[in-house]
Amino acid sequence: MSSSTAEQVIDAFIDVLRDELAEGRAVEVPSLGTFSVEHHPSAVEEADGTRRLTPPKNTVAFTPDPE
């Protein structure tokens, strides 16, 4: 790869992963692993006697390729 091509590939790699994960879709990268998004719904938590309803959130998970 030329340097410019390497930069384009890295940018494309990052962009594809970000966009797919933002849509909630899992992406498999051969010989590396699988990226996915886990959804955590809002929940009631209690701390210091105060009950709070926490907002939902998504977290990124990565499962390495076992090779």
Binding site: Q8, V9, A12, F13, D15, V16, L17, E20, R25, A26, V27, E28, V29, P30, T34, F35, S36
Partner: peptide, 12 residues
């Protein structure tokens, strides 16, 4: 999961 290869090919 979807493979990244075709997505990358389309992007590039």
């Amino acid at each position: 999961p979807e493979s990244i290869t075709p997505l990358l090919a389309e992007r590039l």
